[in-house]
Amino acid sequence: MKKETTKPGIGRYEVRLAGKGGQGMILAGRILAEAVALYDGRNAVQTQDYGPEARGGASKSEVIISDGEIYYPKVMNADLLVCMSQEASDRYYYDLKRDGLLIIDSTNVDRSPTTRVVAVPITELAVKATGREITAAMVALGLICGLTKIVSEEALEKAIRSLVPKGTEELNVKAMHAGLEEAKRLLEAGLPISLPREL
């Protein structure tokens, strides 16, 4: 019989990235998970749910991060929820942990389900940084990195470079840095909520 050494539920950090199809949420989840798993040397599992539409429709990506073995691959109660659309925010807020972190893209989400929220105009920042809305997902990743430290900056950049379409690496890394800058600014200004426990 297999000897089990890890205790699940402890050191388990659950991330859900939700938005509309075409916003890059599934790629963002994959980048985050690959950064953590391949370059930060931790364990990560990524799953995804999407509708039949290639563009539009609800789309979400979930990443479980742990130092031990990961059994259940889905979010039970999210430690971090990033919502890039109003629908995603309405739909997924319910199972966020009480001390979980909610980040919304205030460019697309007008009504936050709670005041315990970090509202950042993610898409607007992306357009400002790169001129391309599609890079909003990378801004979100930069933000996650800067605010939660669940992934290292180096690992994230490596993963972005290896997974985005060839020729768009610089653009996407630039967007990531825009997210990091914003996180730094927010931390200096003081967040409206306390950050969740570190891993």
Binding site: R30, A37, A44, Q46, Q48, I70, P73
Partner: peptide, 9 residues
């Protein structure tokens, strides 16, 4: 569909 689409190290 979970196991098929899931990514793991």
């Amino acid at each position: 569909a979970v196991v098929g689409h899931m990514r793991e190290k």
